[in-house]
Every structure is written in C-alpha cells, then in structure tokens.
Design a protein around this nucleic acid. Structure first.
Length: 760
DNA sequence: CTCTCGCCTGTTTTT
DNA sequence: CAGGCGAGAG
C-alpha cells in the first residue's frame, strides 16, 4: 500500500523538480506540473479554487497555509485571468512576503507577480507616500521606531513639565501606542472618562502628536492609523484603491489590531473579495493590540463568507501534534479544532530537568551533539526557543565555549544597535532636516562640544524662526550659543547642508560613506578597537551597515535614502535570518511564529518564566501564554525537547526554578523525563520537584528546612560550590539561607537551591 | 558648559 | 549586567 508518507517521499523531490522546470517551461506544461506538484487535499483545493466573495481559512499549524495562499493567487491570475495589479496580499513579516513573492515569481514569472505583497507597515508606508498630497502631509517623512517614540515622549513630557518620576515614560508610550492601535485620536482620548494617569497621557498624547508632525515623522502606529483614518476621511483615495485591489488576502488575521482591521475592511468593502487566513489558537499578540475577535467575528462581518478549515497537519510527528492538541485544549474561548496527521508517531517528547541555566545550556548542547551523531543532522536542523531574550546569554556562552556555531535571531536587532542608530540618525537628518529626535542624537555624537544647553538653544532658535535644523546649525551664531559652539555648529551644518542638497544626485551609499568619513565616527572606533573588543565589534557593525546601504543602493536605486531608512526601520531580525547557514538557531517563541524546524528545544520551562509571572494572574493572559507554548510545540517537525532549570540567575540574584505548569499538562504517554540532577543526599535533592500548584498533594510539601539546615552547616551548592551557612531565615516556601562561599556571601532560596549537605 | 565617571534601576513578547 | 541618569571635575 502506498502510504501518505511514502507518497510524500516521492512527491517532494518531484516538487522541487517541477519548480525548477516551471521556470523554463511554457505555460500549459507548467500547469501539468503544477497539478502534480500541488498535491492538495480537498479543503486546500477548495480554498485555492474559491474565487469571489469573502473567504475565511482557518489554518491550523503546519496545514500548508503558505502553499494555499500562493496557489490561490496563482489560480486567480493564471486560471481566472485576473490582472496581478488587482491583488493585494498582506503578510505578517517581510520574510513571509518575500517567500510568497519568490514562489509566485517561479510560478507566474516576474512580470505577472503582484507587486503589492508586504506587511501592513510596509504597504501602508508605500500608500502614505503615494497619497501624501491628498491626505495632507509631506511625502518625505521618516519613521520612528519605539526607541525614537520613547525619546519623543520624554521630550514632550519635559516641555509639559510632567515629571518622569511620577509617570513612567515607557508606560505613557505604550498607552499612546495602544490608543493608536484602537484608532483613538488625542481629542477622543482626552474626552473619554479617564483616570488620573490617563488624563496626563491625554495631554502628552496631544503634544506628542503635534511634535511628530513638526518633526515630519511617523511612528509605527501612525503608519497604520493614518492610512486607516485617511481612507475614511478621504473617500476619493479610498475609492481609488477599492477599485484597484479587488482581491485582498490577509495572512495571520488573528493578529490584526483594530486599526489594521479598519484598514483592510474599508478597502474590501466595495468588492468583498476578502480572504483572511488565521488560527485563533496561534494568537499571541494581544499585548500589542491584536484583537482575536477580528477572526472570531469574521462570519458576522461577512455573513456570506465561505469557511474552510485546514486541519490536516503535514509538518509534525503524531506525538508532537498530540502534545500540541492536549495543551491547547486547556484554553477556553477558541473556535475549537483538532489537528490530525498521517505522519508517523515519531519519538516521545523529552523533558529535561537541569540544575541551572548553565547546566541547561550544557544539556541542550549535549543533546544536539548526540542527535548530530546518531541522526546525521546538520546544525541548521536545530532551533532553541525561549520566552525572553535574556535567556540567550547562557546558551550563547556555552556554544561559544564549546565552539558550536550558532546564530541569534532577534534580541538586540541590528538596526537598533547604538552605533548603527547613530549613523542612521545622521542619515535621517540629511533626509529630513526637521527630525528633532535624530538631530539630538547625532548633533554631539561623537562629542564635539555641543552639549544640552547649546542644542536647546539651536533647537529653540529653529522653532522661533520656523527654519529646519540644518538651517539653524548654519545660523547658530544668531541663536545665542557661545562662539566656540557656533563655530562647531556651522561646520556641522555645512557638511549636512551639502549632503542634503545632493540628496537627489548622490546615492545613499555615497552620502553614508561621506558622513562616516567626515564625522570620524568609524575612525575613532577603529583607534579604540585595538584596545577594546567592544569597539571592534561596533566598528564592524558600521562597516556592515555601510555594506547594507551599498547593497540597497545597487539593488533598488530608485528607492533612495528614504527607501533605505524605511527598510531599516521596518525590517525585523527574522527577515535577515539566513536559514541555510549551518548553525544552531536561537530565537524567542514570538519570533518563531510561522516558521518550522526539524528539531526544536524549548528552554526555560519554569513557572514565572514560561508562563511569565505577570501572565499568571489572569486567565486571559495565561491562555495567551499557553497559545505561545502551542506555537512553540507546533514549530517542530521531527523532535521536540523541553527543559527546565531548578535555579535560574536573573538580574543579579537567583530565582527558584519551579517546573512550568504547562509541562504538567503534557500527557504522560508522550513524555520521556530526563534529569541531569544527581539525587544524592540532603534535603534539597529529593524534594526539588515538589510543586506549588493545585496538584501539590501528589508530592507533599518538604519538611521545614530549619531542622535540617542550620547555621554552621557545611553545604555544597551546584553553582557556587562548597560553603558554610551563616544564617537561615523565613518559613514555608520562602526559606532563605545566607551562605558564605569563599569570600562571597550569597542568599539562596533553600527550597530550590539543590543544596547538598557535607560533613562538617 | 561639557564630559566622564560611578551609581541605580529594572527585564516579556515586537512591527 | 547593561544602559540611563545624575553629580562633580575640567
């Protein structure tokens, strides 16, 4: 009998072959190969061949969603005969957009591939620039990232005399951000019954928005909000795009926020050919304003909608999928579906107990080596996922120590590094001399004698004279700064003005090179590089940035400097990730969304870390964490490892590692438990797994440590080695011992520290 | 006025 | 353990 798996084993190489052939074949033959390669199940076929009217595709993890979307577009253009011009496709990441475009180009050829495929932010930026005249703002705005947003919030708060001690600027920033996600403008925000904090936010929001306009800048949220509002306020613009984009596709619809919802639904309201794809079980961005109701209520918004459910999973082994299903079942408020697969059972999921985060890293590295040896897998098959970026450090240390090639996706993004942002600030001010945030950043970097006071004066002068900031630098002697400062300012102004004038003639690469040279930024760093490793890597980053600009200038010369800056602002780290390099990949669970990997490790399976402490207080937050776990599990194709540590160092101190409640939701039949912890002697060793949760009665509470550990006792700690207890304090779960290790004293939570008793 | 040094604080996830 | 911020010296 031909099993699905065998069939797939035959079809997969055929798929590749047909892809290569389709580039060279004439259309009718291409079709023949397409049909062979398609290998679509009935639900997928239905979704692909649906043409007119709204369509909701509920696509479970690994159900061939990308393929369905791609073939659907192919079908619309190639079989139905639509003009690619009429199609708009919105994806969640640039990477997804690029992949879709590449696949379509292979199927349809570059000339017949739709051009409007991208993320909400990228597409919106494009629309805003095109329609700037009609919408009433300038075309050459720059984009502020959350860093810039925060700087601007601080600046505005200072101007309004609102102390940043009373109101955390970061909290203000995030409130403004979510107001924008809801399409709530400052006036409306001020009008609704607010608490004390929000009344202040309202004032800041108003001034913040004015400052953005003054700076000729838009923040991330503006990009969506201004276009969504632009559509409703400017019917002529809306109509034009409604007529143009008669067929709209939206990926990851469960992660859209209200502003994005309005953005899409206004465009689609004319022809109602809106196809949305999503999975309510994979909604993990509620904290960013994503509204799961958008997908849950799609059938209310479009009563005539067809609904297709893709429930067959092609990605994971049966065991992995069973675990995923068992986990997500614990959530309420879901549409409800159960994925199934014809794949083989595969191995059980492995849960590893480890001593601390270093031991965890060691255990993971060991597993990778073992898998490599037994399964002959390349390093690129392995991916480690974690909840917080900070967790990458221990892993990184271990991999560096044992020389295992790795790559971290996310964390400090390339374009967010200090030195890179410094150079970008120069470029931004050249592109847009009204950008006061970038101005402040670059004007005294590297230090050139223009401190806060002088910069304030120059800025105020610009404001009073209604001139831009480069102009203000040139006329600094009129601004009231000291003669020395004025001289420096004028010199800087001349450099910037010269580059600004050449904006249309010079390439962005030329401008960047000149800036780096004249400011001696790279030069200074290279001088320092001999002494400091950090300076060396920063110099390296600047060179990498120059190379990126160079590449961009060559690849998309028409985009210019603004185009490059836009890309730098909107590109995510996953977008830069090269999955072909033979390295272990490390990333957060959030970043892993939409990706798949042969072998997945999920590290840090501890309460308080995953689920994160703050999510343990509310049911909805906990359910979002669980969905995140579900996303992590369903990334794995062949093997899945989970690990937790009994002790985890976090900001200086150590934290008790209590195995995650999610781990307890995994049915035992799919689970293999391993431990690197030797159970020798001492209280800590045999009660380590005691639980604090509902099921605590399965493993009774440990005896009070007072009887076992007392001052003077010699102990061995898994991390700090041998020491002597100075003091024992606290009771119940919260017993802390002060222990002297050599000449350092540490406080440890006795219950979880895996202390070993030593004879005195 | 500007710069540098050292203290303090605070870590969820990101387009 | 880093980066932001305030205080004192040049």
């Amino acid at each position: 009998m031909l099993t699905e798996r065998r069939l797939r084993a035959i079809l997969t190489p055929l798929n590749d072959l047909s892809r290569r052939l389709s580039d060279t074949l004439q259309a009718p033959y291409r079709d023949v190969f397409m049909d062979l390669a398609q290998d679509l199940n009935p639900a997928q076929k239905k979704a692909v061949e649906h043409v007119d009217g709204p369509l909701l595709i509920l696509a479970g993890a690994g159900s061939g969603k990308t393929r369905v979307l791609t073939y659907r577009i192919y079908h619309l253009i190639h079989r139905i005969g639509l003009d690619p011009y009429q199609i708009l496709a919105v994806t969640f990441t640039n990477k997804a957009a690029r992949e879709m475009k590449e696949r379509l180009e292979r199927l349809l050829g570059p000339n017949r591939t739709p051009e409007w495929v991208g993320t909400f932010h990228a597409l919106s930026t494009r629309l805003l620039r095109r329609e700037a005249d009609h919408l009433g703002f300038r075309r050459d705005f720059v984009i502020y990232d959350s860093d810039d947003q925060l700087s601007l919030v601080k600046k505005v708060m200072k101007e309004l005399n609102i102390s940043d001690q009373r109101f955390a600027p970061e909290a203000v920033r995030s409130h403004i951000s979510s107001a924008k996600d809801q399409l709530v403008l400052p006036e409306a925000y001020a009008g609704r019954g607010n608490n004390f904090f929000e009344q202040h936010v309202a004032r800041i929001y108003t001034a913040y928005q004015e400052a953005l306009i003054r700076n000729n800048a838009m923040d991330f949220d503006d990009l969506i909000m201004r276009m969504a509002l632009g559509f409703s306020e400017t019917p002529s613009v809306l109509q034009r795009y409604q007529e143009r984009f008669q067929y709209i596709l939206v990926d990851e619809y469960q992660d859209t926020n209200h502003a994005q919802y309005r953005w899409v639904n206004q465009l689609a309201s004319r022809y109602r050919n809106l196809c949305v794809v999503g999975d309510d079980d994979q909604s993990i961005y509620a904290w960013r304003g994503a509204d799961i109701r958008n997908i849950l209520d799609f059938e209310k918004d479009y009563p005539e909608a067809d609904v297709v459910r893709l429930e067959q999973n092609y990605r994971s082994t049966r065991s992995i999928l069973a675990v995923g299903n068992a986990i997500i079942k614990n959530n309420r408020g879901r549409k409800g579906k159960e994925l199934w697969t014809e794949n083989s059972d595969g191995d059980k999921i492995v849960l590893m107990e480890t001593i601390d985060e270093r031991d965890e890293a060691r255990a993971i590295a060991r597993k990778i080596r073992a898998e490599q040896a037994s399964g002959g897998r390349p390093l690129r098959d392995f991916t480690i996922l974690y909840r917080t970026n900070a967790q990458s450090r221990a892993l990184e240390d271990e991999f560096r120590r044992t020389v295992m090639p790795y790559v971290i996706v996310g964390g400090l993004r390339f374009y967010e590094r200090k030195e890179v942002k410094d150079i970008l600030a120069y470029l931004k001010i050249v592109a847009n001399p009204r950008d006061s945030i970038s101005f402040r950043r670059m004007v005294n970097t590297p230090p050139r004698g223009l401190g806060d006071v002088s910069v304030d004066r120059i800025e105020n002068f610009a404001l009073a004279q209604e001139i831009d900031l480069i102009e203000a630098l040139l006329r600094a002697s009129e601004s009231g700064v000291t003669p020395a400062a004025a001289r420096t300012a004028i010199g800087l102004g001349q450099l910037l003005a010269g580059l600004h004038e050449r904006l249309d003639m010079a390439t962005s690469a030329e401008i960047a090179r000149r800036l780096v040279e004249e400011t001696r930024y790279l030069h200074d760093l290279e001088m320092e590089a001999a002494r400091s490793e950090e300076a060396e890597s920063r110099a390296q980053n600047i060179k990498e940035l120059l190379a990126a600009i160079e590449e961009h200038a060559e690849h998309a010369p028409e985009a210019g400097l603004l185009g490059f800056l836009e890309e730098a602002a909107l590109i995510a780290d996953v977008d830069r990730w090269d999955e072909r390099a033979d390295r272990v990949t490390l990333m957060t669970l959030h970043n892993a969304k939409g990706l798949e990997f042969p072998v997945v490790f999920i590290a840090g399976m501890e309460d308080g870390l995953f689920p994160i402490a703050r999510a343990m207080e509310s049911q909805t937050a906990l359910e979002e964490e669980r969905r995140l776990f579900y996303v992590g599990i369903t990334r794995a194709q062949h093997k899945l490892f989970l690990s937790h540590a009994n002790l985890r160092r976090r900001f200086g101190g150590a934290m008790a590692g209590l195995r995650s409640r999610f781990a307890d939701e995994i049915p035992g039949e799919y689970l293999d438990q391993e431990s690197t912890v030797r159970r020798t002697s001492g209280w800590g060793a045999d009660t380590r797994l005691a639980r604090r949760h509902e099921d605590a009665d399965e493993s009774p509470d440990p005896p009070s440590p007072h009887g076992r550990f007392a001052a003077g006792q010699r102990v061995k700690h898994p991390i700090w080695g041998v020491g002597r207890i100075l003091q024992v304090a606290g009771s119940g779960d919260d017993v802390r011992a002060t222990i002297q290790f050599g000449n350092v004293t540490k406080k440890v939570m006795v219950r979880y520290a895996a202390l070993e008793k030593l004879p005195s």
